[in-house]
Simulated scan of single mutants.
Amino acid sequence: MEKLDDIDRRILMELQANGRMTNQDLSERVGLSPSPCLRRLKQLETDEVITQYVALVNPERVGLGVTAFVRVRLDQQDDRHLSIFEEAVADIPEVMECYLMTGDADYQLRVIVDDLRAFEDFLRHKLTRIAGVSQLTTSFALRPVVYKTALPIHTARE
């Protein structure tokens, strides 16, 4: 993959703001004619700079009112136990994000559920049943203050 130039970066910024934009609109916004713009877009997809297109859904509008951040400690941190945990949480729909961490926790999860009862079910029937989980610490989000999905991509002029 070649280094991204300013036009590639502008394409990425525009699509992060509106992924449903037509190629015609995108080309006008970044200052290219439609054919070269489409070629660049296809190259960004081929190079896996753009990995997918999604719709962002408001969790509360679909009944998912509780966001929890769960810090997980494993009883052992060898490759085998890390892999077991990572494969297991990847298959749990309520786990929106999972990060391998430094510090006092091995993993940090962002979990979204309907309500506190659903969170208890998630803990008791899913998370604590993963082999090697030894300690959990949970914090509940009261409300989002900053929530971004667009990466901070800058052009040379910024």
Rank of each mutant, 00 (worst) to 15 (best):
L74D: 06
H154N: 08
Y107A: 00
T102S: 13
K126G: 06
N18F: 08
K42G: 08
A118D: 14
A156E: 11
L82P: 04
L109G: 02
V49T: 11
R143Q: 15
L151D: 11
S139L: 11
E97G: 02
M13C: 04
V111A: 01
E60Q: 15
T22L: 11
C98Q: 03
V72Y: 00
R20P: 00
E28G: 07
T46G: 11
D115L: 04
L109T: 02
V66R: 10
L116C: 05
V57D: 14
C98F: 03
I7K: 03
E28W: 04
T138S: 05
D115W: 01
A55E: 14
T138E: 01
V54I: 15
S134N: 07
L64G: 09
H125C: 11
I153S: 08
L116Q: 10
Y99K: 04
I92S: 02
P152G: 08
D115H: 08
I11G: 01
L4W: 05
E48I: 13
L123F: 02
V30L: 11
R9H: 04
V57A: 12
N23V: 15
K42D: 13
R40I: 12
E120Y: 09
R129Y: 02
M13F: 05
G132I: 00
L136A: 03
L151K: 12
L142F: 15
M1E: 05
T102W: 06
A156D: 10
K126H: 13
F85M: 02
D78V: 05
V145H: 09
T51N: 06
L4G: 08
L151M: 12
R29W: 04
N18C: 13
G103L: 03
L127C: 05
D8H: 06
T67W: 01
P59K: 12
G63W: 14
R39N: 12
M101Q: 06
L64H: 11
P34M: 14
V30K: 05
F85R: 02
N58G: 06
S139Y: 07
A156M: 07
A17C: 12
E158Y: 03
F140W: 06
Y99V: 07
N58V: 10
M21A: 13
E14A: 14
T128F: 01
T128G: 01
S27C: 09
A156Y: 04
L127S: 02
L44Q: 08
D91P: 00
R40Y: 10
I11V: 06
I130P: 02
L127Y: 01
D115G: 09
Q135Y: 01
D114R: 13
H154W: 05
P34E: 14
P36R: 12
E2S: 09
Q43W: 07
D5E: 04
T102G: 10
Q135S: 03
A17D: 13
D75L: 01
P152V: 05
T155H: 03
Q43K: 15
R71A: 00
V145Y: 13
P144L: 14
D6L: 03
D47F: 05
M96S: 10
C37D: 06
D8I: 04
L41M: 11
A90L: 07
F122R: 00
K126W: 05
R10V: 03
T22K: 11
F140D: 02
Q77R: 04
M21G: 09
S27I: 09
I130C: 04
L127F: 03
T149W: 12
P34C: 08
V57P: 15
T102H: 09
G132V: 01
